[in-house]
Design a protein around this nucleic acid. Structure first.
Length: 635
RNA sequence: GGUCCCGUAGCUCAGCUGGAUAGAGCAACUGCCUUCUAAGCAGUAGGUCUCUGGUUCGAAUCCAGACGGGAUCACCA
């Protein structure tokens, strides 16, 4: 509608304004509820060029539109705002159009370019936690939104399956895992512990032994025993001790020095040396180490897979760091020849980004090995090779890595890859607990599996208390609780603008009233209940013929859906979809409370309203689908 | 210290391509189930949009500065 009005104004600009006006002067906004009208034109910009009062201009435009456009029913002017009222028939036609499209609001599938969305990308030494949940739900939802917007999408993740961290778990398992009567060490099979949790347990176990050993070393040093330690280390320690004594009144400085001493001691532990040795063996493909590595990673993948299934998310393509960590090296060496990078005397390779307002960044260590940045360069290039028609990668990664991605994209650009500017860092804020930031050392990490189980449990309680469960089997009830619990969690994490840091309040997150998934799901279930009854009463839902103001207001809301998807896709922001679903449902609930639908005596109106409800339900379902949230037929 | 992000009701958040009287949810208080699912609806109360300047007919929104919070600046990932 707005487009039509804009067109008419532009085409008749000479006649109306005496000159050709710029398109951007035509500004629409939603008509505020307290005024009559469907579309509002802001007329201040015109009054400026016409040098007359906004009210006069508004009146002139209003009269003109009413005369020229059949679908303009009337208009009113309030303080320079032209509120335009559209004919009911226009809206009735809109609804009939919406009803015909089973995927209303979505664009033609695969009508736009191919995008890759990366999300999750966990380490294989720790189970997934709350931070991953925000990441995963976001990445999945953005993928669905891009698809609905017409893009072809590849969901991917890079699995951080190699490095010192996984060696730590491996070593701890080999060394500290108890042996049962059959002579086996702990496995997911013989303990019943989920694979990722078991490996995580040994990562923690490593850390305990690691810290203890470091403490013992410090105790030895403090007692003045330095036999068996390299001279440099002894010297460094003594230097630090001396510095500490000098700054004994500066608490902060002492703390810093103590941390340095601890790092120094940690580097002298045999357990770390052994883990590093294991990494060297892994890189040399030592068969025994490799077997242990594949076994333990296998456990982790089984564990992650179970978690992803509970989350109802998936991936189209996996990248493993063990395959990609060597990539990028050659590219960096090429870049070195081209002069993009430079080499320091010790052999390390760097890029100088100071001209771009950034620092110098290391790309290859002096021993020739890669760092994270090098790998990311390689992986990005690999992906564009794997998918030649790829039109950009969206990296779902927390905002602590804003700088990293800024540098990555800049380097790719400097290397001459023109697709670099199509890469986007979907940066999201940290999830805080009421007690502050999650810290693994303080045991405040919220485990993903535990949290999901808790949400489902809470849904279970509420469903038993107030659900409409007549005729549902146990399995169906379990499915319903899953839908409500997981839906609630997704909704809670997605409703906030991704860019912003958010507070996760465990008590509030299991809440099922207000701005929550169950609120929306309940609205949907109510609609389905109406439709079931209509069906059992054999009411034919053929076409929309007659509607009243209250109904038409809802059609206006429905017709916004396509724009919401566009905006959400352009800004990679599922929260826009969440808020839309909430507002639509709220509007429906209010309508439902005050209007007769099934009980409406006028048959044409009753059928029209049922079709309206059916389509509200459809849009709620399609909207929630973009968030990865299911809707129940009854609850 | 440099760079980046954030600051809106008691709490959690919308609104930010400048436009009408700044909105929701939670918490508090009042009503509404013999009537289509009360996980709901209607209402009351709650604001110096951190502060100070600037641009503008018009600023929560744009610009500058201050204050407060966070992130980041590793031969870690």
């Amino acid at each position: 509608m707005e487009e039509q009005i804009k067109k008419v104004l532009l085409e008749n600009s000479q006649e109306l304004f005496g000159e050709q006006i710029e398109e951007k002067l035509i500004q629409f906004q939603q008509t505020r509820r307290e005024f009559e009208g469907d579309v509002t034109l802001v007329t201040f910009p015109f009054s400026k060029i016409l040098k007359s009062k906004p009210e006069e201009v508004a009146g002139k435009i209003g009269a003109f539109l009413k005369e020229r456009m059949a679908s303009v029913k009337s208009y009113n002017v309030i303080q320079g705002f032209l509120n335009i009222v559209i004919e009911d028939d226009f809206w009735i036609n809109q609804l009939n159009g919406i009803a015909k499209e089973s995927q209303f609001g979505y664009s033609e599938p695969n009508s736009k370019s191919l995008k890759m969305v990366e999300y999750s990308s966990p380490n294989t030494n720790k189970p997934l936690h709350l931070g991953h949940l925000r990441n995963i739900f976001l990445g999945y939802s953005v993928s669905e939104i891009l698809k609905a917007n017409g893009h072809k999408v590849i969901k991917t993740q890079i699995i951080n399956d190699r490095g010192i961290h996984i060696c730590k778990s491996m070593l701890a398992w080999e060394r500290f895992s108890p042996v049962n009567q059959k002579g086996e060490r702990e496995t997911p099979q013989n303990t019943g512990i989920k694979g990722d949790k078991l490996v995580g347990k040994y990562y923690v176990e490593f850390d305990i032994h690691f810290n203890n050993e470091a403490k013992e070393i410090i105790a030895q040093w403090e007692a003045g025993r330095f036999d068996g330690f390299p001279k440099e280390v002894t010297a460094e320690y003594q230097k630090l001790e001396k510095a500490k004594a000098e700054k004994s009144d500066d608490e902060k400085a002492v703390k810093e020095i103590n941390a340095k001493i601890k790092d120094l001691a940690k580097n002298q532990t045999t357990i770390l040396r052994d883990a590093k040795e294991m990494l060297v063996k892994w890189e040399a493909r030592d068969p025994q180490v490799y077997l242990l590595w594949t076994t333990m990673n296998g456990w982790v993948y089984d564990g992650f897979e179970a978690t992803y299934q509970t989350m109802e998310v998936d991936f189209d393509k996996l990248y493993y760091e063990s395959d990609t960590f060597i990539l990028g090296r050659d590219v960096v060496l090429e870049g070195l020849e081209k002069g993009v990078f430079y080499r320091k005397e010790d052999g390390s390779v760097w890029i100088d980004l100071t001209a771009d307002g950034m620092d110098e960044k290391l790309l290859l260590r002096s021993d020739g090995t890669s760092v994270y940045m090098t790998q990311d360069i390689g992986t990005a290039i690999e992906r564009f090779r794997d998918y030649p028609d790829l039109d950009g990668i969206i990296y779902t990664v927390a905002n602590e890595q804003d700088y990293h991605f800024k540098v990555l994209f800049l380097i790719l650009d400097k290397l001459g890859y023109d697709w670099a500017k199509k890469c986007y860092h979907l940066s999201y804020g940290m999830v805080d607990l009421p007690t502050g930031r999650m810290k693994s050392r303080e045991g405040t990490v919220v485990d993903a599996d535990d949290l999901m189980a808790e949400m489902i449990g809470e849904a279970d309680k509420m469903t038993a208390e107030r659900g409409h469960l007549e005729g549902l089997t146990k399995e169906q009830i379990a499915e319903l609780n899953h839908t409500i619990g997981i839906g609630g969690l997704k909704y809670y994490l997605l409703k906030i603008d991704p860019k912003k840091r958010m507070m996760f309040n465990p008590l509030e997150s299991v809440e099922l009233n207000g701005h929550t998934a169950p609120f929306v799901q309940y609205g949907y279930a109510r609609i389905q209940s109406l439709l079931r009854k209509a069906k059992s009463e054999n009411i034919a839902l053929t076409a929309v013929t007659k509607l009243e103001t209250e109904d038409i207001n809802l059609i206006k809301s429905l017709s916004r859906f396509r724009n919401v998807i566009d905006e959400a896709a352009n800004s990679y922001s599922p929260s826009l979809v969440v808020n839309y679903c909430f507002e639509l449902t709220k509007e429906f609930n209010s309508y439902y409370q005050s209007i007769n639908i099934l009980k409406e005596e006028n048959e044409a109106l009753r059928a029209s309203r049922l079709i309206l409800c059916e389509n509200i339900g459809k849009v709620i379902r399609l909207g929630m689908q973009l968030l990865g949230i299911k809707v129940p037929e009854r609850m």
